[in-house]
């Protein structure tokens, strides 16, 4: 069991290394990609400077909390797109029958698939997120919490994309929904939860799990609460388990490239 995990990890790391090597072929492009993503994210802070000119708080958040929120979202988004970039185009792989190569390998299909590509600009997101968190001077404890929640946030984002993407085994046209759902989630995750009330608030905490990925964590970095921590950890684990189950359930219905040819 332990050697199996070790071997799997060896393949994943090699895959990551080769992916980055591919992008490093042209160093200038690689660096502009990363740097511009940082600038790109930083540009959006202007929005908050404007909003904080109008009121001292936005949805109950101070500028510092907004920066934590952004830092956490960018870091989680970045990490998930560095390690598991393929999960965000899983629908396309399923619909076009591109899982074959992973199914004939003696490794975990899901892990092999989602680690098979890397989004280079996401390195910029991750760097930006961590830098922003440092700028908030959260203290040693706060910083460790930030790192922990970056990991749970990555799990929630990845599992959510996996869940939606896996529905492609049953329904066509999920590729566009997958994209929209993930982008929508990121959009919500860059605004304070205080502006949402009632049903939308409930939905955003439990169904589209923005609350679990970033809002709870931001509150906890400010004032720690053990109960909430367990809720977040439990939720991340539960969502991941559900998503993995749906993926494997759907894999039985996988049709390879055969549907494509039949459709023509």
């Amino acid at each position: 069991m332990l050697t199996a995990v070790k071997n799997q990890l060896r393949v994943c790391l090699l895959s990551l290394k080769y992916n980055i090597m591919r992008e490093m072929v042209n160093k200038v492009t690689f660096l502009t990609n990363v740097c511009f993503m940082v600038l790109n994210n930083a540009a959006l802070l202007v929005q908050w400077f404007i909003l904080f000119r109008l009121r001292e708080d936005v949805g109950g958040y101070t500028l510092r909390e907004i920066m934590l929120l952004w830092g956490l979202t960018a870091a989680s988004f970045g990490l998930s797109h560095i390690l598991f970039a393929r999960v965000f185009s899983l629908s396309e792989l399923i619909i076009k029958g591109k899982l074959d190569a992973y199914l004939v390998q003696p490794k975990n299909v899901l892990v092999s698939v989602i680690t098979s590509s890397t989004d280079i600009s996401a390195i910029g997101d991750l760097l930006y997120g961590v830098a922003l968190a440092c700028a908030c001077s959260p203290g040693i404890g706060g910083f460790f919490l930030f790192l922990l929640f970056t990991v749970t946030g990555t799990i929630v984002f990845t599992a959510f994309a996996l869940l939606i993407g896996s529905l492609s085994f049953w329904f066509l046209r999920m590729d566009m929904l997958e994209n929209q759902a993930v982008m929508g989630m990121i959009s919500f995750a860059t605004y304070p939860d205080g502006i949402f009330q009632g049903i939308s608030r409930f939905l955003l905490y439990y169904i589209i799990p923005v609350g679990m990925a970033v809002w709870h964590p931001v509150h906890m970095i400010n004032s720690f609460h053990a109960g909430t921590l367990f809720t977040v950890l439990g939720y991340a684990l539960l969502l991941l388990t559900a998503a993995v189950c749906v993926f494997y359930r759907g894999l039985r219905k996988y049709s390879s490239g055969n549907l494509m040819t039949a459709r023509m």
Binding site: L51, V58, G59, Q180, M183, G184, S187, Y191, I195
Partner: peptide, 12 residues
């Protein structure tokens, strides 16, 4: 999604 967020944001 965008409009929804902005309705809420300006509402606040």
């Amino acid at each position: 999604v965008f409009i929804f967020i902005f309705v809420k944001l300006w509402g606040y």
